[in-house]
């Protein structure tokens, strides 16, 4: 059973603003979906190893080396942000 306060708490954890209307809607929907997830409780999973990778389990590494990126690419990436200052992305103050 999911309550209104649960939905609000999850929204805060996920950093998503939700309207009252959305909260009302999600209460019922989340309850339905989580009840469906509980079908897994009927499965015999004792002693089964969890799958961490479906196809290979080999660790892959590549050389730890810096790659030079052209100014052009840098500018393209910075252009994606809405507020910039001196070639950096500007955000609200982190420390109040």
């Amino acid at each position: 059973m999911v309550l209104k306060k649960d939905v609000i708490r999850i929204a805060q954890l996920a950093r998503i603003q939700v309207s009252n209307k959305e909260v009302e809607k999600f209460v019922g929907e989340f309850s339905d979906i989580l009840t469906y997830f509980d079908t897994l409780k009927k499965a015999k999973l004792k002693g089964i190893q969890p799958m961490t990778h479906s196809v290979t389990s080999q660790n892959v590494v590549r050389k730890d080396e810096g790659k030079k990126v052209s100014v052009e690419v840098k500018n393209k990436l910075v252009a994606m942000t809405e507020t910039t200052k001196g070639g950096f992305s500007k955000v609200k103050a982190i420390l109040q």
Binding site: D6, V7, I10, A11, Q12, L13, A14, R15, I16, Q17, V18, E22, F26, E29, F30, I33, L34, V91, K92
Partner: peptide, 23 residues
């Protein structure tokens, strides 16, 4: 700012899945 950006930018199904995944 995070909450507003994500609240306005994501559609309903995306919010639903991110929130249930977070849970």
């Amino acid at each position: 700012m995070y909450e507003e950006n994500r609240g306005e930018g994501f559609g309903e199904e995306v919010k639903r899945r991110i929130m249930l995944g977070t849970y």
